[in-house]
């Protein structure tokens, strides 16, 4: 399933650093600058690329126009734009549509776990659901009630 698999804060941090480097730089240079192993940095690069905020080309990472606009926005503007980008990810959109077809637009955690396992063949559905919830919340698309284990559309 196409979904960022790092915390939102990692993507923001990566974009901020990239902007400091003038919008384009060797990925290894960012890793070096932050004293990070390349392996620790790559998931954030993948997530930012998936969302269309950066493009990666022969070892260099470059901020896209969408990435620049995102950075120029305040907290709320960023979240709104993030929501739009998330809905461009087919599988994420499918999850949202699945919930929107339900009465009162709410599903149990169990229902989503089944969807993720069966529809997207993910073996670690729990892990994927965790990311769906985190990103859906940041993109102002989902609300999660951890007491009732329910996920609803905003």
């Amino acid at each position: 399933m196409s979904i960022p698999r790092v915390h939102y804060s990692h993507v923001i941090g990566l974009l901020e650093v990239l902007e400091d480097f003038g919008g384009r730089v060797d990925i290894a240079k960012i890793a070096d600058d932050l004293s990070l192993e390349l392996d620790d940095l790559l998931p954030a690069v993948d997530a930012a690329e998936l969302l269309g905020f950066v493009r990666v080309e022969s070892g260099d990472i470059e901020l896209t126009d969408e990435g620049s606009i995102f950075l120029s926005e305040g907290t709320r503007g960023r979240k709104k734009q993030l929501g739009e980008r998330l809905l461009m990810l087919e599988s994420f959109k499918e999850v949202i549509e699945f919930i929107s077809q339900k009465e009162e637009k709410v599903v149990t955690k169990e229902e989503l776990l089944n969807l993720i396992g069966e529809r997207f063949y993910e073996s670690d559905s729990e892990e994927i659901l965790k990311w769906v919830i985190e990103w859906g919340r940041h993109g102002l698309l989902l609300k999660y009630d951890s007491k009732e284990d329910e996920i609803r559309l905003v």
């Binding site: 804060s9 907290t75 985190e134």
Partner: peptide, 21 residues
């Protein structure tokens, strides 16, 4: 909460949050 970017996380418990959050 909204100002610091925690909108939609009002009802979350600390265990649901990353260190940055």
């Amino acid at each position: 909460v909204e100002e610091v970017g925690l909108e939609d996380f009002e009802d979350a418990y600390p265990r649901e949050l990353s260190g940055g959050m």
